[in-house]
Write a protein that binds this DNA or RNA. Structure first.
Length: 413
DNA sequence: ACTGCCGGGCC
DNA sequence: GGCCCGGCAGT
């Protein structure tokens, strides 16, 4: 499997020729978009969980647009259509980018593809020149007998994708969304989706997202009394696991993008011909744009490493590093039956505000426990301290802590 | 430069 | 544990 890195300029032009034979997904965001997303308070993701569904719907809608172009390749979209794409893409990006957990966008083929699906999958779209969605056409059809769309309804999973509903999205800020389709289509019924707890030393696997969330909530987050309440934090600590019963690893996952200019966390789309799913890794920065589709046998785990993260990124064999515009991110993958897990970053990180520069990298890590990085140092006390109040000359009046150059105990902030 | 205080050493 | 201080980092 290979991924290709595109520069911003590539996206503006027809880059279809540059597409590798394999699937890939490329998502581009404007720098402003990323900044916007970055400056949002992490906690906000917890405030709009109910918007998750909306995010998913938007994705589907977006996908629909894509598919609509499939059969009409070189035809340019109408301006109205383009506008809609813009809006939709912006909304999707925004909502997804704020989601710490990157789940692949569920898409219902029947609805989103307008019946234009062909057995082989997507047909190259000419819309790439418009900076929108673009799919690469699979070169072969792995399963002619199953002319179903790559994305099946039964694979739709209501992943929670916290979004920010009240954040108006400026169409003008919408950037490019480029998708690519995995070439080979996978057979249905060969995958089983499970949810694995990423909590350190846990690894509990449950069959439902709700179950794993509840598990995390009650067991790890200690929210016994509010087991029914979810603020989305538990999303950070579990990942989707695809258990493949098929030995053939023809599925590919796509990867996506990143803001060429900012190096945002690339959305991570993976595609499953039959079971599109979303595998999302949340990041507190909300920069992650989780547009993922998974190949039947692959599950990607995305991890974003911020400058403050203490743990260095882990690269595993079969990974690729992108360096769009100097900003890099890497993606790792493996063939089935290996499972990728997106490692979420705790939303509770102590992160400096206004992180304009997003030094981010996306990594896929195998079975990595959730990593949580804390601020190295607690915020400096702002109030008066013994030293200031009494002065150096009255050092004997200082509290003990101050005398010992420890955190002041008398004038606690 | 000043200040708060962490991390660590010494007793 | 008490005491002290080098040094980092925020202001």
């Amino acid at each position: 499997m290979t991924f290709t890195t595109f520069q911003q300029d590539d996206l503006k032009n027809d880059f279809s020729q540059k597409l590798p034979d394999q699937q890939f997904l490329l998502l581009a965001m404007r720098e402003e978009d990323l900044k916007t997303a970055d400056t949002k308070k992490p906690n906000r993701i917890h405030e709009h969980e109910k918007e998750n569904t909306r995010s998913v719907c938007l994705l589907e809608q977006k996908r629909k647009v894509v598919s609509s172009n499939i059969d009409v390749p070189p035809v340019r979209k109408s301006s109205e259509e383009l506008d809609m794409d813009k809006v939709t893409a912006a909304m999707v990006l925004t909502s997804l980018s704020t989601s710490p957990l990157v789940h692949s966008p569920p898409v219902r083929p029947n609805e989103s593809l307008n019946g234009s699906w062909k057995e082989g999958g997507f047909v190259p779209s000419s819309t790439s020149s418009s900076g929108y969605w673009s799919w690469s056409a699979p070169s072969d059809q792995s399963n002619p007998s199953t002319p179903s769309p790559p994305l099946s309804a039964d694979s739709f999973k209501p992943f929670r994708m916290p979004s920010q509903p009240d954040d108006s999205i400026d169409e003008a800020e919408t950037s490019n969304l480029l998708f690519d389709e995995p070439i080979p289509r996978k057979r249905k019924n060969s995958m089983k989706v499970m949810f694995k707890c990423l909590w350190k030393n846990c690894g509990k696997v449950l069959s439902t997202a709700a179950g794993i969330q509840k598990h995390i909530r009650t067991i790890h987050l200690g929210r016994v009394g509010e087991s029914d309440y979810s603020d989305g934090e538990e999303d950070f600590y579990y990942t989707e696991i695809r258990l493949n019963t098929d030995s053939v690893a023809d599925g590919l996952s796509s990867l996506s993008p990143v803001s060429p200019s900012l190096g945002s966390p690339p959305p991570f789309p993976t595609q499953d011909a039959n079971r599109p799913e979303t595998s999302c890794a949340k990041t507190e920065t909300k920069l992650m744009t989780p547009l993922s589709r998974s190949a039947p046998t692959n599950l990607y785990l995305i991890h974003t490493d911020h400058a403050y993260q203490a743990t260095p990124p882990v690269n595993i064999p079969g990974s690729t590093k992108f360096t769009p515009n100097g900003r890099s991110f890497s993606v790792s993958w493996q063939s089935p039956p290996v499972t990728f897990t997106g490692i979420p970053v705790s939303p509770t990180h102590n992160r400096p505000a206004g992180t304009g520069e997003l030094k981010q990298q996306i990594h896929t890590v195998l079975s990595s426990p959730p990593r949580v990085s804390f601020g190295l140092r607690k915020p400096r006390g702002e109030g008066k301290k013994c030293r200031k109040v009494y002065g150096m000359e009255n050092r004997d009046m200082w509290c003990t802590a101050c005398r010992w150059k420890k955190a002041c105990q008398r004038f606690v902030d």
